[in-house]
């Protein structure tokens, strides 16, 4: 997982450095080129302020999610990737179930990777869009704490938003 071939084209790049990211949830380790990992503002700040050791521990993010994050960073660190390719690759990364997406959005937030945060939020929004609110409850496991009368009152208050919904 260490060096990607496309880096050889990049003649101006200085001697390649790698960082090791370690998930503190299941102790999985990932060796990543530094310029790939630096897309995370959180990691960049750690490296810049010299408080990053050989292994950077990443709390609260599982290896499975960290692998997705690194895949995203690798794609976006590749200077020869076209915009279309990146879009396709991003779509592949976020084609996950809602619980993985929530883990991913939290990881992107913690690591401060703006692009990933945006595509993941967009995907979560897409998975809610056009659903009746009863389905939203089911998907996210939200308990309905309205009485039928209260729910009817909320709907009546915002009836303009419920046109065409049962």
């Amino acid at each position: 997982m260490a060096s990607a071939p496309e880096n050889e084209k990049n003649a101006s790049a200085p001697e390649k450095k790698t960082l090791t990211l370690k998930s503190m949830i299941n102790n999985e380790e990932f060796v990543v080129d530094e310029h790939v990992a630096l897309q995370s503002v959180t990691i960049k700040n750690m490296v810049d302020s010299d408080c990053a050791g050989d292994v950077i521990p990443v709390p609260t993010i599982s290896g499975e999610i960290l692998a997705l994050v690194i895949e995203y960073c690798k794609n976006h660190a590749n200077p020869s990737a076209s915009e279309d390719d990146l879009k396709k690759a991003d779509a592949g990364i976020v084609a996950k179930d809602i619980y993985t997406l929530i883990d991913l959005v939290l990881a992107a937030n913690f690591l401060d990777i703006k692009g990933l945060l945006e595509v993941t939020s967009q995907k979560i929004a897409d998975s809610i869009k056009d659903l009746p609110h009863q389905d939203v409850r089911e998907i996210f496991g939200v308990e309905n704490d309205y009485t039928p009368e209260e729910e009817a009152a909320v709907r009546a208050e915002h009836d303009w938003a419920f046109e065409g919904f049962p």
Partner: peptide, 27 residues
């Protein structure tokens, strides 16, 4: 588990109509 500001961001993407609809999900 989602921080407040990310929840807000998702609502902004969803737009006004979808957001208003979500007020019927729970209190």
């Amino acid at each position: 588990r989602i921080p407040f500001d990310i929840f807000m961001q998702i609502l902004k993407i969803l737009g006004p109509k979808e957001s208003a609809k979500l007020s019927a999900v729970c209190k």
